[in-house]
Amino acid sequence: MAITAGVAPLLFVQILYREGFYTANLLLGPRWMAIVPALIIGFYLLYLAKTDRVRAARWLAVTVSAVAVGCFVFVGYSFTENHLLSVAPSAWAGFYGDGSIAYLVPAAAPRYAMFFLGAFPTLAVGLGWQLRGEPSVHRAVAHLGIGSLAASAAALAVWLLTLPDGHRDHVLGTAGGVWLGLAVAGGVLQAIAWAMSRGGITRVGLLLATAGLTATLLGMTCVREVVRLASVDIAAMAQQHAHSARSGGLLLFLVFLVVNGGLIAWAIAQARKATPVPPG
């Protein structure tokens, strides 16, 4: 589902920021394409990690899990690197001429740290819903939520401080201020929810954490785009955007989005009809 969900943004980034995205893909070349085998290896290792044979041997379980995590960390970093190169057109010709395969710039570390650490509050919410029937782990999940929020907030501060002045002004100004505020408010909401949940996760607490997470994700997505828009010459893309906008099918897309969304909800609801697994 993660890969499938990623296809939609991948589709529209090619419409909105084509030259930058394609150029970064091409410049990084085989090094960028390595994310595909890394994803294949990572996902299959996760399946492998669930097998009885691997679970029985602790060293094997740790090794398999560590390699899988390594694959996903590499993929995440590659996206950060690709994005930073895509918004640096002045670096393209030199990068190509040098035959480089890695775009190592100081901006990569704080940016990747922020998005990497930002994944853990999402994990905490997911675990909270999945494990809400198991009180013994509630405290650990709440601590994961609070701890990762604190780490994410610190990474966000470092990222903001290391942004070029012009970009930071956009994030803190009219264009990005509202979205940054939404993201921070979402974070505060999550922190309150997890603080409430240390004694035990409740439905209300989880709903609060989920609402906060949604606000943070929405806010940070927009903040990220504000930075991108400050980096690219959007006026130069106007002609291509106008050309693409002439394509029909939007109405039909909305119809199928609703219909297929309903069928997806129906399919998920069928899981409830399953007879329970016998104990033991």
Binding site: L11, L252, F253, F256, I268
Partner: peptide
């Protein structure tokens, strides 16, 4: 291909998502 058909590609994505969910359930 994207210029010409991006909304149809987006429609295909809704079907692919349905395929994945139905299959996984």
């Amino acid at each position: 291909m994207l210029d010409a058909f991006h909304w149809l590609w987006a429609i295909e994505w809704t079907f692919f998502s349905l395929e994945i969910v139905a299959g996984y359930v």
